[in-house]
Design a protein around this nucleic acid. Sequence first.
DNA 1: GTCTATACTACGATAGAC
DNA 2: GTCTATCGTAGTATAGAC
Lengths: 207, 207
Amino acid sequence: MTSQTLIETAIDQFGRHGFEGASTREIARASGTAMSSITYHFGGKQGLYLAAADHIAACVREIQGPALALARDVAGTGTREQATEALLALLDGFAMMMIRPESEAWALFITREQQAPTEAFDRLYAGVMQDVVAVFVALLGRIRTDLPEREVLALGLMLFGQTLVLRVCRAAVTRILAVDTIDEDTRALLRARLRANALCILSEKPA
Amino acid sequence: MTSQTLIETAIDQFGRHGFEGASTREIARASGTAMSSITYHFGGKQGLYLAAADHIAACVREIQGPALALARDVAGTGTREQATEALLALLDGFAMMMIRPESEAWALFITREQQAPTEAFDRLYAGVMQDVVAVFVALLGRIRTDLPEREVLALGLMLFGQTLVLRVCRAAVTRILAVDTIDEDTRALLRARLRANALCILSEKPA
DNA sequence: GTCTATACTACGATAGAC
DNA sequence: GTCTATCGTAGTATAGAC
C-alpha cells in the first residue's frame, strides 16, 4: 500500500516540521516511492495533509474505542460510582496514549491545528473529539450533579489537561522528573497521581 | 530598533510555521527591513531563532516575575495557608497568561521545542522554567508534606496541565464552551474552576 | 499505478554599494 | 546599519513514458 505508507510517513513529517516545513520530496523518499505518487493519490501536499488528519482521527478512535463504548453505556445507565470508575479509566487511557512515543507526531499535528485551525481540525473534531467530549461530559454530569453544565465542561477540560501535559511538555516532564524517557516506575507514579487528583476533584464536596 | 522588531516578528512567524516553515524573506518584509539585516544582527536564521527563544523567556519572566518573587518568599517562611494562596495565585497567573492572545506564538514555539528540543529549549528552561519549577515545588512541598518529593513533582506538573489546556487546546476549548473567543464570563468561569480544582487537590487528605 | 524529467517558484546566504 | 543584486539549492506541481 503506497498510499498507506505515504500517510504514515506524512504524519511523522508534518508533525515534526509542520505543513510548510515538511517536504513532499522527503516524504516520498522516506516512503520509498516517487514524489508524483502524492499527486496521484492525494492530489497534492494539501490533500496528503488532510488524509493524515483523517488517519490520526481513525487511530485515536481505534485506541480509545472500546473504553469509549463502555463509558457510553455507563453514562446512560450506571451508578455514580460506576460513572466515576469509567471516567477514571477513560482518563487513564488518555494518559497512556500521551505517554506512547507514537503520539508525538499526532500531538504536534493536532496542537498546530488547535492554534490555527484549518479544515484538518474540523476533520479531527468530527472524527474523534466530538464523541470523546460527549461521553466525557455525560459521565461528569452524572458524577458532579451539583454543577451547572458549563462548569462541567470546564472541569472536563482541566481533567484532560492533566494528561495533556505529559505529551505537550514532554521535555520539561522528563527534565523535572530527572529521567531520559518515561520508564515503568515513572509511568506508575504518573498514573497513580492522575487517579488521585481526578478522584479528589470528582468527589469534591459542593461549597 | 530593527533587531527588536525582527525578534517580535520572528516569534510570530516561527510559532505559526515552525523553524523550516518560516521564511526569513517574510520575516524581514513584515518587519519593514531587508533580509540581510537578519544576517547582520543575528548571523542567520538559526541565530534569530535562538534570539526569539531568549526573548520569550524574558517576556514570561517579566510577566510572572513579581508573583514568583512573592511566592519565593512565602515558600521560605510562610504558613501552609500562605503557601496555598501563593500557589493558587501563581497558577492563576499562568492561566491568565495562557488565555492572553500574545501567548499563542510563544505556545507553539515552546511546544515544538518540547517535542524535539534544540538549543532553544535549553535557553527557555534556564531562562524561566527552572526558576518557576523550583518555586512551584517548594510551595507544594510545604503544602503537601505527606507526599514524597517525586509525587510532589508529578502533582505540580498536573496542576500546570490544567492551565496548559487553555492554550494548547484552544480551538477545542472555544468549540466545547461554544464561544468565539474567551470572553469575560468564560474567563471568570475557568479561573473559578481552576481554583476549585487546585484547592481540592492541594488539601486532599492522605489516604 | 508508478516512474523520470522538467518547469517554475521561493528559499537562505552573501557580496558590495551607500 | 541598511540596502539591492545575485548565487546555488530545494520546494511543489505537472507532463509523459512505461
